[in-house]
């Protein structure tokens, strides 16, 4: 979001440096002029390179969007909407109902959020506000390691370790929406924890002192002063965590059972096999004929995901309070 502003800041930095370097020298008028010419030439090159990389981001995003539209729009044009949002996903019989996949993604994501948000926030609060230094120094590396575990490894763990436990609890199969949620929760935890902790860290120490000096307890201080002051950062942490959960594919494919059926609504839904939108694309893309309707529908799913993720990002910006405001652009 801020990429367009950053280039200008860095040009400012470069030009300042060069200007300082040439400032106090005792050069003759001629060499000073030469120097200035060189300087403005390199300045021009650098500025344009930076501009180019800024513009390339816009170009790439636009291209991606048009590619998705080109490949996927047929799905929305050729298939009647009622069938497209129907409840049966049987591509071989020509039935492309996206509803089960959406419901699957929904349950897995909701489950992940329900597990990850409270766990992530409390961990961050503990780390940032309560834990003594030595505990923090032990805990933080662990969280960094958690962030570094490849998602497929977590998926594998879910498959061999978590799934049997869930099956023993009485679910028809260990590979359920909940298994996926659990794995996803742990995948998004490091994001939520570290961003929330940063947000807490940014709250001025004076707020805490002020609150405590007025006779508030530590918990009252955290709940009434620190958390509200860090609100926007925390919302951002949650949204980025959710973003990670929705987009994740392989691990989820491994542990959710991949059954494209609509689970009955309610708590039990979490303990039935489901299939997510991302997993469907990953699993079937290799088998479809390019240009076929099935192929178009898979890209259609991509469009749906794109819209949902953009929606979440937009919501995050709104909630954070920026309301789409941009900093003024930099110009020398």
């Amino acid at each position: 979001m801020n990429e367009h502003n950053r280039p200008h800041t860095s040009t400012e930095g470069t030009s300042m440096k060069t200007r300082e370097a040439s400032g106090p020298s005792k050069m003759t008028a001629r060499s000073l002029w030469e120097n200035l010419k060189d300087q403005s030439a390199s300045e021009l090159i650098i500025e344009n390179l930076i501009r180019l990389s800024g513009i390339s981001v816009i170009v790439v995003v636009t291209l991606i969007f048009f590619f998705l539209l080109r490949e996927g729009s047929a799905a929305f044009l050729d298939i009647p909407l009622r069938q497209l949002f129907g409840s049966r996903w049987y591509p071989i019989e020509g039935l492309f109902g996206l509803w089960p996949l959406m419901v699957g993604s929904f349950w897995v994501t909701i489950g992940a959020v329900v597990i990850a948000v409270p766990l992530g926030l409390t961990t961050a609060i503990y780390l940032g506000e309560i834990a003594p230094l030595w505990q923090r120094e032990i805990l933080k590396p662990f969280i960094e390691v958690l962030a570094g575990i490849p998602s497929i490894v977590l998926g594998f763990l879910g498959w061999v370790a978590l799934a049997p436990i869930i099956q023993n609890l009485g679910a028809p199969s260990g590979l359920t929406a909940f298994t996926g949620s659990f794995i996803l929760a742990y995948m998004s935890l490091p994001t939520i924890i570290s961003i929330t902790e940063d947000a807490l860290y940014a709250v001025p120490k004076e707020y805490r002192d002020g609150s405590l000096a007025l006779g508030a307890t530590q918990w009252q201080t955290i709940w009434r002063v620190v958390l509200p002051a860090a609100r926007s950062g925390i919302v951002m942490a949650i949204m980025l965590g959710i973003g990670r959960a929705i987009g994740e594919t392989m691990a989820v494919m491994l542990v959710t059972g991949n059954a494209a059926n609509i689970p009955e609504f309610g708590f039990g839904a979490l303990f039935q096999p489901i299939r997510t939108m991302t997993a469907t694309i990953a699993a079937e893309m290799g088998e479809v004929a390019q240009g076929s309707l099935h192929y178009n529908v898979l890209f259609g799913i991509g469009i749906v995901l794109f819209v949902v993720t953009s929606g979440i990002n937009l919501l995050a910006t709104r909630l954070v309070g920026g309301r789409g405001k941009r900093r003024p652009g930099g110009r020398l």
């Binding site: 004076e206 707020y207 002192d209 002020g210 609150s211 000096a213 007025l214 006779g215 307890t217 002063v225």
Partner: peptide
């Protein structure tokens, strides 16, 4: 301690209103 801080109150050098 909480009660003590209500009876011995403190005002800091940098005035920081709470949000």
């Amino acid at each position: 301690v909480i009660n003590l801080r209500r009876r011995i109150s403190m005002v800091f050098a940098i005035p920081t209103p709470l949000p």
